[in-house]
């Protein structure tokens, strides 16, 4: 399929979801509310709830999908994503520790950001740092599969710590932790969070764009990349930095959201090929649009109930991906 064509379709799809999603939901919102000329109630629903939420969701989808793409290329492994490497669990652990031990003593906002979000961000970034140290200090000859296993082990370890904290906490705190771990974008009100996360995602994506040639070369193997002139260590460090900024910010605000980071890059690879120069914009668009669709379904599919977006991503994305995977005549090259 023509790459320009695929990119145009994805762009159209992204714009369409961004335009339609804010008007879908429990309360009908007339189009005129866009220029704030209608009823104050529905204007508020549109501008304080729906639009910020859709914007946040798109940002989150983009950041998670791009991070997945970067990790898959760096590890040369189709299963490598921030989620599978335990970074979401790290963020959850950060938030849980805050809820368990600091939620009464420390309530002051820092730079307008709630402390729980800061702790989750710290948890995510600390985990990425740990993964980075593990991968770069590992004995020579460690396979990427080893590193992936280490990440999965880390993830389970953190999850157990969270369960332990929950078990030891009182009912209210335990519920708050559980609710956080389930993830969700439903608490997004107004643009505050969007403005907080946007610079992180923008900076991360810029850095990835800056390293797009390096990503292609790394896909061919580390020896290949180095012999073509890639300064591997500094490239990896910058990529880890980009991912930690994006995922840290998104997970801290939205909670752990799985599957987008794993599937969006793969779906784009199947549609447009492994070349990151086109794969990257495709992944940004599809990741964002996909998560917006999932969230919109999550808040409309069952009346008066909001399903956490993580449930929908896998429910919708899983079968679609399987279909894509097995409908190909040429067979699936994960990269």
């Amino acid at each position: 399929m023509n790459k320009t064509f695929v990119l145009s379709i994805l762009l159209a799809l992204a714009i369409l979801t961004l335009l339609v999603a804010p008007f879908v939901g429990r309360y009908p919102v007339p189009l005129s509310d866009l220029w704030q000329s209608g009823e104050p109630g529905t204007i508020n629903v549109l501008w304080k709830l729906r639009i910020p939420r859709v914007a946040m969701t798109f940002l989150a989808g983009t950041a998670l999908a791009v991070s997945g793409m970067v990790f898959q290329a760096m590890f040369r492994n189709p299963l490598a994503t921030p989620y599978t490497l335990g970074i979401s669990s790290g963020a959850s652990l950060g938030a849980s520790i805050y809820i368990a031990y600091f939620s009464e003593r420390w309530t002051a906002l820092i730079l307008g950001i709630p402390p729980q979000t800061i702790c989750a961000f710290a948890g995510a970034v600390a985990t990425i740092l740990l993964v980075y140290l593990l991968t770069t200090r590992a004995p020579k000859g460690s396979t990427t599969a080893t590193m992936l296993l280490a990440g999965v082990a880390l993830s389970f370890f953190f999850s157990s710590l969270i369960l332990f904290l929950q078990y030891m906490s009182d009912f209210t705190r335990s519920y708050r932790m559980l609710r956080w771990v389930m993830g969700g974008i439903e608490s997004i009100v107004d643009f505050g969070n969007v403005w907080t996360v946007l610079p992180f995602v923008l900076a991360g994506c810029l850095l990835v764009a800056y390293l797009i040639h390096e990503l292609n070369l790394m896909l061919m193997g580390e020896d290949f990349a180095v012999s073509r002139g890639v300064a591997l260590e500094s490239t990896k460090m910058l990529l880890y930095f980009a991912v930690s900024m994006m995922v840290g910010a998104v997970v801290a605000v939205c909670g752990p959201i799985g599957f987008v980071g794993l599937m969006a890059p793969h779906i784009c690879r199947l549609l447009i090929g492994p070349d990151h120069r086109t794969l990257f914009p495709a992944t940004m668009l599809l990741g964002g649009a996909f998560l917006v669709v999932c969230d919109t379904l999550g808040r409309t599919i069952i009346p008066d109930t909001e399903l956490p977006v993580g449930i929908i991503t896998a429910l919708l994305g899983g079968p679609f991906f399987l279909w894509l995977l097995f409908s190909r005549k040429s067979g699936f090259h994960e990269f």
């Binding site: 040369r76 073509r228 990269f335």
Partner: peptide, 16 residues
């Protein structure tokens, strides 16, 4: 282990 790039894409990458 190879990646499904075309020959030309692969060679262009060598201009890195």
């Amino acid at each position: 282990r190879l990646i499904p790039f075309t020959v030309e894409q692969f060679l262009l990458m060598c201009r890195y």
